[in-house]
C-alpha cells in the first residue's frame, strides 16, 4: 500500500530530526531569520556573516526573510521558536526602538531572547540635496535654524534609520522641519537626488556612493570619531551636537532558553566571521566595519539592547509617532 509506505517514510524521517542537544551542536542546518525582505541592507549584512559563520560551524546557515511590520513579525517568530539553537535572529537597532514604537508587541523584547553578539555598527551621515546652500556643517546648523519652516526632511518610513536619525537631528537643532516619509530608502533617496526634498540623515550603506558621486552633499557624521572614509566630514559631536551620536547596530539573538554553550558557540563563529578579510572588505565598501571581538559577545549585546531601549523611549515618546 502506498499509504503504508508513506507512513513508514514519515516515521523514518521524523526520527532523523530528533531533538538536538548542545553537546554536538550544531548537527544540522541553522536558520537565520532576517526580519526584512531579501536584498535590503540588513539582509546583506546577514548573508555576509552567515556564509562565514557556516564555515566556522561546519553546518550551513540559511537566511530566511520574514519581513513585515518594521521587523517585529520576524522577531516575534523567533521569540516563539524552539530554543535549540537552530533558529537565530539577526536584527538591527529596530529591536530596541520597536519596544517603544509598537505598543502591542507580541513579545517582551527584554525577556524573550538570549544574546549572541553585536555584528556591526553602521554610521549615519547628514546629507542634503546637492545644491543646498550652506557650505559646511556650522553654516548648515544656522541655516536650518533660520529656515526651519521652509525645509523638508525626508525619511524612509516609521522606524527606519533615517526616521530615527531625523528625530535626533530635529531635537538637537531644536527646530521642527516638515518631515516627508517615503516607503523605503530608494524612493526617499530618489527625491533627494532630484532636489524634491532638502535634507536626510541616513546610513553610509545608502549614502556613500551618492556622496562620492557628488549627487548629494554631506555635512556631518554621527560617529564619535571621524570616519576614515570621509576624513573631511566633521562629527556632529565636535560641532556641538552631542546628542546626535548614533549608529545602526546589528545583533544576533536566539530564543529565550537557548543553552548558554550554544550562544557561546555561535558567538565564537560570529567573531571568526567578523575577522574574515572578505567580510571586512565588503563592510568597508559600505562605509562600516565589523564589531570588535569583545562586542561580538552575549554580554555586550545584552548591555547594548538595554541601553538603547532606555535611550530611545523618551525620544520616540517626545515625537509622539507610533507604528501601531
Amino acid at each position: 500500500m502506498a499509504f503504508k509506505k508513506l507512513l513508514g517514510a514519515l516515521v523514518a524521517a521524523t526520527m532523523l530530526t530528533a531533538p538536538a542537544f548542545a553537546a554536538g551542536y550544531p548537527e544540522r542546518q541553522i536558520t537565520m531569520v532576517v526580519p526584512f525582505s531579501a536584498g535590503g541592507p540588513t539582509d546583506t549584512v546577514a548573508r555576509l556573516v552567515a556564509e562565514k559563520m557556516s564555515s566556522d560551524l561546519g553546518q550551513q546557515i540559511v537566511v530566511e526573510n520574514v519581513g513585515g511590520a518594521g521587523g517585529t513579525l520576524g522577531a516575534g517568530q523567533v521569540a516563539k521558536a524552539e530554543a535549540d539553537g537552530y533558529t537565530v535572529l539577526l536584527h538591527h537597532i529596530g529591536m530596541a526602538t520597536s519596544a517603544t514604537l509598537y505598543r502591542n508587541l507580541a513579545y517582551d523584547t527584554l525577556n524573550a531572547f538570549e544574546y549572541v553578539g553585536l555584528v556591526t555598527e553602521v554610521p549615519m551621515v547628514v546629507v542634503a540635496r546637492k545644491d543646498f546652500e550652506p557650505a559646511d556643517f556650522n553654516a548648515f546648523k544656522d541655516y536650518v535654524k533660520a529656515n526651519g519652516d521652509k525645509l523638508t526632511l525626508a525619511n524612509a518610513g516609521i522606524g527606519a534609520a533615517s526616521h530615527l536619525c531625523g528625530m535626533l537631528l530635529m531635537q538637537a537643532l531644536e527646530t521642527p522641519l516638515v518631515t516627508v516619509p517615503y516607503k523605503g530608502t530608494g524612493p526617499a533617496m530618489t527625491d533627494l537626488l532630484g532636489g524634491q526634498t532638502d535634507i536626510m540623515c541616513d546610513q553610509t550603506t545608502n549614502t556613500t556612493q551618492q556622496i562620492q558621486g557628488g549627487t548629494i552633499k554631506a555635512y556631518a557624521v554621527t560617529t564619535p570619531e571621524r570616519l576614515p572614509l570621509f576624513p573631511d566630514l566633521p562629527t556632529a559631536k565636535e560641532s556641538g551636537l552631542d546628542s546626535l551620536e548614533f549608529a545602526i547596530w546589528h545583533g544576533i539573538y536566539t530564543p529565550k532558553g537557548t543553552p548558554a554553550e550554544v550562544n557561546e558557540r555561535l558567538s565564537k563563529a560570529l567573531q571568526a566571521a567578523l575577522a574574515d578579510g572578505g567580510v571586512i572588505k565588503a563592510m568597508a565598501d559600505l562605509g562600516t566595519a565589523p564589531s570588535p571581538a569583545e562586542d561580538a559577545t552575549p554580554a555586550a549585546l545584552k548591555a547594548k539592547l538595554e541601553a538603547e531601549i532606555t535611550r530611545w523611549k523618551p525620544v520616540i515618546d517626545a515625537a509622539g509617532t507610533y507604528a501601531d
Partner: peptide, 28 residues
C-alpha cells in the same frame, strides 16, 4: 545610474550587487 531599485526585483539585484562588493550608485 542611480543605484535605486524601481521594483522589488531590482531591489534584490541591488542586494546581490552589494554582497558581491559592488555598491550600486552613480559611479558604477
Amino acid at each position: 545610474t542611480l543605484g535605486i531599485p524601481a521594483n522589488p526585483v531590482m531591489a534584490l539585484m541591488i542586494g546581490a550587487m552589494i554582497i558581491q562588493g559592488i555598491v550600486p550608485g552613480p559611479n558604477v
